[in-house]
Amino acid sequence: MDSPVTVITGTRTGIGRFLAAHYVSRGHRVVGCSRGDVDWTLEGYTHYTADVADERAAKALFADVRKTCGRVDHLINNAGVASMNHSLLTPLSAVHRMLDTNVVGTFLFCREAAKLMKTAGYGRIVNLVTVAVPLKLEGEAIYVASKAAVLSLTEVLARELAGFGITVNAVGPVPIATDLIRSVPQEKIDRLVSRQAIPRLGTPADVANVIDFYLQRESEFITGQCLFLGGV
């Protein structure tokens, strides 16, 4: 079998960047995107500058992937934005920003990837959510609500796409030292970590380990599931 084609969103920094390098090292042809350019390159990695919530940009990206790679085997919806704030102090612009990137962007990329996967009768989609959903984390109402929506989307798409040989699953990381939590007070992170069965920060490798499992050919009977890290 030739190299699998893996699309990853939000690859400029953090978990997305780690995953891009991880799957390139495993011989995948990796296609990534972020709103801005990346200041790094990798053999086997192609970058697109695209806002995941922009329908035309999403369609153009997948049209190009279809032309250059002929198919998509894996989609990892990693792009996400968070905002730590009490709900009474959360501006509407932040609400729209989070819903657009986290929910609309995930939906659009699932929809467009599934069209290509359907043609091949095979595909693996993995959506990133967060332990903040089951922990009902106060101070992140919209972020949590947006990721809860991604979780529901995962469960419904798993059923809608099962007939096409496509599985859809989610992974819920604990806090990981990335840009996403840079502005969250340390005391808040400590409190969150203490609620885990294994009280430590996560690593991008912890996330990759779960995704590796979902992407395996042998995982064809696993869909609509979410695996939370750290024993949450």
Binding site: K59, A60, A63, R66, K115, K118
Partner: peptide, 21 residues
């Protein structure tokens, strides 16, 4: 219907070089 719509979108992409939904 889903199969037809996806096939037509891809045929339009191939024939006209534009992506439509």
């Amino acid at each position: 219907l889903v199969t037809l719509v996806v096939a037509v979108e891809q045929a339009i992409e191939d024939e006209y070089g534009v992506s439509v939904s």
